[in-house]
Amino acid sequence: MTPKVFETVTPRPSAYLDRLAASDLGRFYKGRMLDALDVRPGQTVVDLGCGPGTDLDALAEAATSTGTVIGVDHDRAAVDAARERTAGRGTVAVHLGDLHGLPLADRTADRARTDRVLQHVADPALVLRETHRVLRPGGRLVMGEPDWDTLAIDHPDSDLSRSYTRYVTDEVVRNARIGRQLPRLAAEAGFQVPTVIPVTPVFRDVRAADEVLGLERTTRRALAAGYLTDEAARRWLAHLADGPFLAAVTFYIVVADS
């Protein structure tokens, strides 16, 4: 293992989300999502799984002082952080709640978004039905989710790359293939899906990739789960640290209209 290259301590969730948002990748895809959401002044916007409130300020700016932004998250610490972050914004409210049963009345929102949330929930289809319920006719949902089955990391031994990706899709992420499934799930929930935007970041710097992917931490877990042997894990990380590096994964931005 090579701790000089890889981040060995798991960052706090709020720190990880803020760090990703501040990266070139985060600014790019979040900008694309905000453009697709097309928030108008005076509208009510719901951030589903808002976390520590990373995106609430940008949504509030788009809705202006005449609009309302509602954040919903199931994690008490995240809700507290989001409330503290937006304490100076009277147009923002943050609720503790389950996305499978939103604490919102029918047809009360104009816009909604999810950002890398549906990959973790127990029932993405139910969350989409709930979102459709709270959106007004003519409303819009914009979702951004990775498809971890597309994760490709170059290595001279392609079997190691396949084993690593298989571990991520089988064991690490609950709904690992959600990116490709979103258009179908949204249509089944009653939405029209006019636009699907694929975004495929390519990482050439191992440190930048590690900040997003947690390469060593995930490798250790794959080793413990039997997807890699000790010798394979050593060879895998040694090449990632020292050899020319390339990794890519496809992220889907899906626009769904109610």
Rank of each mutant, 00 (worst) to 15 (best):
Y16N: 04
L17V: 10
L20G: 04
L20S: 07
A21R: 11
D24W: 15
L25K: 09
G31C: 14
M33K: 04
L34K: 08
D38N: 15
G42P: 13
D47T: 06
G49N: 03
D57F: 12
A58Q: 06
T64F: 08
T64S: 15
G67H: 02
I70H: 02
I70F: 05
V72C: 05
A77Y: 07
R83S: 14
R85Y: 01
R89H: 13
R89L: 14
G97I: 12
A105P: 01
R113K: 15
R113T: 11
R116Y: 05
L126A: 14
V127Y: 05
E130L: 09
T131D: 07
R133F: 00
G139S: 10
R140W: 11
P146A: 12
D147T: 07
L151E: 03
Y164G: 02
R166A: 13
E171K: 09
R174S: 06
A176W: 04
Q181A: 15
L182I: 07
R184Q: 13
A186G: 10
P194F: 07
I197N: 11
R207K: 13
A208G: 04
D210W: 01
E211V: 00
V212S: 06
L213Q: 00
R220L: 10
R220K: 09
L223E: 02
A224G: 05
A232Y: 03
A233K: 09
W236D: 02
D242A: 14
A248E: 12
T250V: 13
V255P: 03
